[in-house]
Design a binder for these strands. Sequence first.
DNA 1: GCTGATGTATAGCACTGTTATGCATAGCGT
DNA 2: ACGCTATGCATAACAGTGCTATACATCAGC
Lengths: 207, 207
Amino acid sequence: MPKAADPAVRRALVERAAEMLARREAVTLRSLVAGTGVSTMAVYTHFDGMDGLWRAVRQEGFTRLAARLAELRPTADPVRDLAALGAGYLGHALEHPDLYRAMFDVAADLEDEQAADDTFGLLIGAVARAQAAGRFSPDVDPAGVATGTWVFGHGLALLGIGGLLPATSLAGLATADAEARYVAAGDDLAACRRSIRNGWRSFAPPA
Amino acid sequence: MPKAADPAVRRALVERAAEMLARREAVTLRSLVAGTGVSTMAVYTHFDGMDGLWRAVRQEGFTRLAARLAELRPTADPVRDLAALGAGYLGHALEHPDLYRAMFDVAADLEDEQAADDTFGLLIGAVARAQAAGRFSPDVDPAGVATGTWVFGHGLALLGIGGLLPATSLAGLATADAEARYVAAGDDLAACRRSIRNGWRSFAPPA
DNA sequence: GCTGATGTATAGCACTGTTATGCATAGCGT
DNA sequence: ACGCTATGCATAACAGTGCTATACATCAGC
């Protein structure tokens, strides 16, 4: 029966790969297509091989992260929003550890850089709003603060995923880092602490 | 001629694996032993398989890092020493990128945790000395500051290795982070900047 | 100078991703 | 309506991976 190049097959394979990743199953060419009724060749027509599949999986990871962070609508407190972005980022990494690892496993291009750029843009935007609101000094570079936040978040996520840091310590490390970072950017210590607490309120490390 | 279980073979294989990693060659069972005169079975008698080889390679990475950081003898300025440890850590990661990745690729045990613990102990010790010297507040937890420093360094190393951050920006990000971190720990801004500049003086990103 | 034990080389196994071949189907021109 | 071409897919084979079973060569002890 098959002839039409269903994009549905493509999506199904990517989602199946993400599911297998979540179940900590090995994602292999044959195990991926097993039971789907589709053959190994489908991976080649749709993704041009396993490398292409992993590219699509990484893309999926960035897309999901972008969607998750886009749900965090800005409030009147931009510093709280910045902290909430950090909490959402860490939450995404801890809830989908293998997907997160795949996202940064290889420094290859994404199919669509937009999702990654948009996500980082959210971070820069929050810093810029904190600046505009007078919380951060006008001298600081929003991209620089955002980059530093990302670097710390990435290290924290990977060390947490790898088990080199106890899961219960991650939020504390993140909030302590945020405090130092925001104060260095010019925020008032007390206000900063309040904002961080509010931003991390909904964070709960996965069991 | 072979019968005696030479430990020399073991060391030779680990060093060869590290060399292949440095040359960005694929370290595979057959390619590893090719040309060494020894057969694939040697990997099993000495390492009990490829997993054991990778454990030994990770161990080698930690040992080299420990040796490198141990060369940085403490000076009269503990904050400078702390910064120098960060520069040495980043230098190790950038000069041996694949070895660094292997060190943290899998969250499996090391053969000898001592090297890793000693290295982290150097970090804690520097913070404690900064505290004893009155540079850092007596309230801060040395292990906490050390952990935060490590988390940021790890994220910076991996993003730098992966090419997601330009190599020329890494030192600037690291020093900016150190500044915020040390000031948050209680150090004076001007003195802190001087110490960081001194600690990072010898740092040069590999071409 | 045997005997037992131990490390190693050879060859094969199951598995990986990839590719060559053949076939069934869909779209299109006449 | 028919045949033609092109395309997507299934099958099977290929080189490569880590690993293991078997046989051989070497050494230690008596």
